[in-house]
Nucleic acid binder design. Structure first.
Length: 292
DNA sequence: CTCCAGGGATGAT
DNA sequence: ATCATCCATGGA
């Protein structure tokens, strides 16, 4: 199969796919295979060129948000040591435009899960209930639609290792499938209204809502606060302060990181998670023991 | 073995 | 408003 080609400057494909925003792309040959909606796509990067098959250039460019003005976005970040280090570490990392339902569903399954296991759950759901496709000798499965999941049982989903998340995914799938929750229509809402609507869905709280807003609704100001980001914020921005409430953190993030706070958050997250020992934030240690 | 993970819902202070 | 607890599962 012949590959098509499009220019992609200020873009790092592998880093973007490994940054914890999308969970289903797999290594295929010397590139990656995955689904963009219902289409199976192969893509690999060679310098400033993206070589791809399975979709149009327009779909590729839109999905990877190659139109985001990354230079300007990075310039809008606050000028402090933690942010600067994260920005240097995350060159070319872009916030993609993901399909609403699969992003929402995947982050409902993400609660109290490591990235590796979110990937495993996504793979199981796709393999069992999605549509199988083939691209360049690699298998790709689309994410099951809300209607498909709505017809399953909680036991079906628990069998995919979802645990207590099964009930939430099923209930939300049924709301979306019935049209009671019109997640496509919600793209017209303001940030605040959108967050309220998302949080009404079973299994969606502030953190998941912000992830979905950032990764599927292009609300680049949305700032998800998970355990990693919470540690980064407390250690880098509130050092030697015993008590920092969730409300304080939220208020700080809304203003300090500016109009592209979601990008800043993703860079801080990726740096903390994947950076070297120097960047790593220490997990909370159990008190006691002769620490010396 | 233990500790922890891109949390949410519920009920008690 | 803030805190405690429970909820499943598997990687490290």
């Amino acid at each position: 199969m012949n590959l098509q080609q499009t220019t992609a400057i200020d873009f790092d494909l592998a880093r973007t796919l490994d940054s914890g925003q999308v969970f289903h792309w797999e290594i295929c040959g010397d590139g990656f295979a995955g689904a963009i909606g219902e289409q199976s796509v192969y893509v690999k990067q060679r310098d400033d060129q993206l070589l791809y098959a399975g979709a149009t250039a327009g779909v590729i460019q839109d999905y990877f948000a190659l139109d985001h003005p990354l230079r300007e976005i990075c310039r809008s970040f606050p000028d402090d040591p933690a942010m600067g280090a994260a920005r240097d570490f995350c060159a070319g990392l872009r916030i993609m435009r993901q399909p609403r339902w699969e992003c929402l569903a995947t982050f409902i399954t993400s609660s109290m899960k490591q990235v590796a296991h979110i990937r495993q759950i996504s793979r199981t759901l796709r393999t069992r209930y999605g549509e199988r496709r083939r691209i360049r000798d690699c298998e790709v499965h689309s994410f099951p639609t809300a209607c498909r999941i709505a017809k399953l049982t909680e036991q079906n989903l628990r069998a995919c290792a979802l645990g207590y998340r099964a009930k939430n995914l099923l209930a939300t799938a049924r709301l979306v499938a019935s049209g009671d929750a019109d997640i496509e229509e919600w793209s017209e809402l303001s940030d605040e209204s959108l967050r309220v609507r998302l949080c009404e869905l079973p299994g969606v709280g502030a953190k998941v809502a912000n992830c979905v807003m950032l990764f599927a609704y292009e609300r680049l100001r949305a700032f998800p606060i998970d355990v990693w980001i919470e540690r980064v914020l407390k250690q880098k921005y509130f050092p030697r302060k015993r008590k920092v409430t969730a409300a304080q953190l939220r208020a700080f993030c809304e203003t300090y990181f500016g109009e592209h706070g979601g990008y800043a958050q993703q860079y801080l997250f990726h740096h903390a998670r994947k950076g070297g020992a120097a960047s790593r934030v220490a997990a909370k240690r159990k008190p006691g023991g002769a620490g010396c």
